[in-house]
Design a protein around this nucleic acid. Structure first.
Length: 468
RNA sequence: CGGGCUAUAGCGCAGUUUGGUAGCGCGUUCGUCUGGGGGACGAGAGGCCGCAGGUUCGAAUCCUGCUAGCCCGACCA
């Protein structure tokens, strides 16, 4: 995999200034952490997101994203954009509110039922808060693309969606309002549409890998979107909503550093083949007879959180909505389509479900809201204050984002806060260590500490993040 | 949408059975002592007890109706 630096880091991140970073002093940051667990939160990611001051519930299944939650959300969005662009897809933005007319044309205005939030504007026109965008994108496509020469084409956007769930729960894991990447490919025939399918599978695998997640593609049901070929990507976690069955061999697969040419049909097909060969199904498509052919020691079942799905659905929408192109033989044919989604807001919860301990969150380096926490053990002590300021400036100058806990709190409270919010690295600065010229660099994940000179701690962190 | 439950200070809760004018812990403010894993002591601030109506001399408490939220199920990214 090309390193993140080949694809500029944070191109979409919070500010339009390329490479801009925002380090922070905790005394000036809005981080309302809770010592006690709010009663409404049942699962660990929801509890930790509330306690770590990442989100606040606005109403059932609808959340405000506070600064630290927002920062993680933007980092995930950023990774998704980078990997989509790398795969050659076109970023764009469609509105949240859509006209009901397009949905009447596809027949889904009636089919979608109460999950669709319907509103009426002042002129009495039927509108809806989009739960997905097949109709809108097909309309855009059919008005501008008429020839196979303009294909293949993949358009995507990352936008808020709304599905009026009967029973929202689990915080952002199953909210009514959610932030999602959805993309749509348009191809002249079935074989090229299958390449688009395979290309998406590869880019999704890479996206999840960069987020520090093991997301397993599993053959799935097409559900209300309809279609022929579809895979869901699931992250294993006890709190997952789906029961999953898989060959443990699939856990060893890794894209790693391998070069991928997204225009190479054979290579994309081979990678898809590699990931879909070991048995992996959700309970909806589980086949007990096929499963028993997996060696018993490798036969696993557990729970999984769905964090993405890819579909090939052929001409389902292009036929009903007259999205046709002229092919090389001069015939007018309905375009072949697929759609692909990544639940970006849900991923925040899924990552926490997959990475936490009893003290709090443990962020993977690639998505952490801040790269490192600086804990000043004795605020007001001249040596400690100066050492922290120097570290803060040095890290920032190297392009890293520190969160400096400069509050007048006791050491225990500062450690507890750092553990709760889960920054992967912590530099502990106190008068005792400074007498010997050292600070402590601690891994949140392993708890291991090393005593280093301040400048060596900075160098070590630069090294760690260069690999992310 | 069926079944169960909850609503009292920023958060977690008690008080409701038996009606008498609101309390605890955490947080928060100020002070003193402390200072390497949520410290101690002292003094404060903070509530139309979800909303509306009713019963009563008097309602957080009893009655009626709403609203919001949570859990189990069905459904779903």
């Amino acid at each position: 995999m090309p390193s993140a630096r080949q694809c500029p880091r944070r191109i979409w991140h919070l500010t339009s200034r390329p490479g801009a970073i925002n380090p922070m002093r905790l005394s000036r940051y809005f981080l309302p952490v809770l010592k006690e667990t709010p009663a409404e939160a049942q699962i660990v990611s929801h509890r930790l997101m509330l306690r770590a001051g990442m989100i606040r519930q606005a109403s059932a299944g609808i959340y405000s994203w506070l600064p630290m939650g927002f920062k993680v959300l933007r980092k995930l969005e950023n990774i998704v954009h980078e990997e989509q662009i790398r795969a050659g897809h076109n970023p764009m933005l469609m509105p949240t509110l859509q006209s009901a007319d397009l949905w009447r044309e596809s027949g889904r205005y009636e089919d979608y039922g109460d999950e669709m939030l319907r509103v009426t504007d002042r002129h009495g026109r039927d509108m809806l808060y989009g739960p997905t965008n097949e109709e809108l994108i097909t309309d855009i496509f059919r008005n501008s693309v008429t020839s196979y020469k303009q294909l293949p084409l993949t358009l995507y956007h990352i936008q808020w969606k709304f599905r009026d769930e009967v029973r929202p729960r689990f915080g952002v894991m199953r909210g009514r309002e959610f932030f999602m990447k959805d993309g749509y490919n348009f191809d002249v025939d079935q074989p090229s549409a299958m390449h688009a399918y395979n290309r998406h599978m590869v880019s999704y695998l890479r996206t999840y890998e960069r987020m520090g997640l093991k997301a397993i593609p599993m053959r799935a049901d097409s559900g209300p979107i309809g279609g022929d070929d579809t895979h869901e990507f699931l992250v294993l976690a006890d709190t997952g909503e789906s029961e999953v069955f898989y060959d443990s061999a699939i856990l060893d697969l890794k894209l790693g550093d391998r070069e991928v040419d997204y225009d190479n049909w054979d290579q994309c097909a081979a990678i898809k083949q590699e990931w879909t060969t070991p048995y992996a199904r959700t309970d909806e498509t589980h086949d007990e007879a096929a499963f028993t052919k997996v060696p018993e020691a490798r036969r696993m079942s557990s729970r999984g959180i769905e964090v993405g799905q890819i579909f090939y659905f052929g001409t389902k929408y292009s036929e009903s909505m007259n999205a046709n192109v002229v092919n090389a033989e001069g015939e007018r044919v309905p375009v072949h389509m697929g759609s692909h989604g990544i639940g970006v807001s849900r991923l925040v919860g899924a990552i926490i479900e997959a990475s936490h301990d009893d003290r709090g969150i443990i962020w993977p380096e690639s998505v952490t809201p801040f790269d490192v926490g600086i804990v000043n053990l004795k605020q007001g002590d001249t040596a400690a204050d100066e050492a922290c300021e120097t570290l803060y400036r040095a890290l920032t100058a190297k392009g890293l984002e520190p969160l400096y806990d400069d509050r007048k709190e006791r050491a225990g409270a500062k450690f507890a806060t750092m553990d709760l919010i889960g920054l992967p690295w912590r530099i502990t600065v106190g008068p005792r260590g400074l007498k010997n010229g050292i600070v402590e660099l601690t891994s949140r994940k392993t708890g291991e500490s090393q005593e280093l000179k301040p400048e060596d701690a900075v160098a070590r962190l630069v090294e760690i993040y260069a690999e992310i």
